[in-house]
Design a protein around this nucleic acid. Structure first.
Lengths: 226, 226
DNA sequence: AGAAAATTAGACAATGTTGTCTAAATTGTC
DNA sequence: GACAATTTAGACAACATTGTCTAATTTTCT
């Protein structure tokens, strides 16, 4: 009856907390060492549990790996959609607003710890587990890119952009704002805040030169093709 | 001591041929399985030699891995510089010429078997062998990107482009022509010829909208024919 | 407090891998 | 044909890892 003040112990949580700790540790180790190189003893130690507990929770190494990928996909997708909701549909300053959006997306989703880990797993194990990552491909880029394309189509409809194919435009946007981060992405390095901002700034400026509307906002000298 | 004619006195053909076969097989297996997952027996079998021969040639697994990365870096850099030499310095049709260059670069260097393998090794083992890949980074993108930037600066000087920072421009060019290949690159898939052409076409068009000279290029100065 | 569930440490067999060694076989050269 | 270098297959020890099992301990619930 004497309920000690629940300082930091959550009676029903302990079990689940361990599950999360195991998945988190497995994430880190799988990404660092690859599937083959990952060591269950190391995962257990890093999670602060015994090896047997890892097996109790997840059965075997491959099931643990699948759990890691699913968790990572879920987390990243949630973040991307949350950020997508901040897209500037009614921009005041189109350039500044797009740069802000690009930086949010990159900092919170693409360059975050989870983003880095998911990328690494796709890169290292994508070929070996095609069905597992087909799921990611569908729910990830297969869903978020069209959603982004729709936002650009809307901006074009409102006269802020002059675009042809919204899907191509979306991919060009992503390609441009990440243009200076490619090597970091390949090496599995997290770019600095500064790099992210700079790549986004340069990228958005080029993007607007390619896709900005020429008519409404500012008159540019036009070498009229007429 | 028996200094016979140093042409083919040894069994260089067979011997060297085996060395190459081993490195080639190791490439394939390391890329498919990762360093930890790669199996020397499998490499030997794939090279058509006995396991002992692998050890005779390369000492141990790590030395073999280093040999693979060096060979791959060398091959890819050679290809990139060869292709860079075909950059359209005096374009007739700027769009068509840049698309052609982009397709050549991607097909021959980036999406080739070697290009795919090198990318995969950087992605999977880049963090574990920083000094090994620092070498690649310097001789690879660290050299080829400035070289490409110089070409763009020259085009701008000749009035074909309107650019600000040539290095940023070069990265934007690469980002745009690869915009539709990113997922394939992440998954370690070789894009089809058709995909490469399409991504290059869309990319170059956007690139020229962003960086094309607003007025047709005027020949400011005629280079003296050498 | 007492029962039920979860966790732990450790031992354990089974398996696979690396790298070495040896004796036989193959190859190319004189 | 003889000779020297290379290659081969196989055995081998050392080691690491996975996944199971057990008995003791801790945690949680009633």
């Amino acid at each position: 009856m004497s309920q000690t003040i629940a300082a930091d112990s959550f009676p029903p949580r302990s079990h689940e907390a361990k599950r999360v700790a195991i998945v988190d540790a497995a994430m880190s180790v799988f990404c660092r060492e690859g599937f083959a190189g990952a060591n269950i003893d190391l995962i257990a130690a890093e999670a602060g549990v015994s090896r047997q507990t890892v097996y109790n929770h997840h059965g075997d190494k491959e099931k643990l790996f699948v759990a890691v990928v699913r968790e990572l996909t879920e987390r990243c997708n949630a973040g991307i959609f949350a950020t997508l909701a901040t897209f500037p549909d009614q921009p005041k300053d189109l350039e500044a607003d797009l740069i802000g959006y690009a930086v949010r997306m990159n900092r919170n989703c693409i360059c975050s710890r989870d983003g880095k880990f998911l990328r690494k797993l796709i890169q290292t194990e994508g070929e070996r587990y095609p069905e597992l990552f087909a799921e990611w491909r569908e729910n990830g880029p297969g869903t978020t890119l069209p959603a982004l394309a729709a936002r650009f189509a809307r901006l074009a409809f409102a006269g802020h952009l002059a675009i042809d194919d919204p899907d191509v435009t979306a991919r060009h946007f992503v390609g441009l704002i990440n243009a200076e981060l490619q090597i970091d992405f390949m090496m599995g390095i997290q770019p600095s805040q500064e790099e992210v901002l700079q790549s986004a700034t340069h990228g958005v400026r080029a993007f607007l030169r390619a896709y900005g509307a020429r008519q409404p906002a500012s008159r540019q000298r036009e070498a009229a093709p007429a």
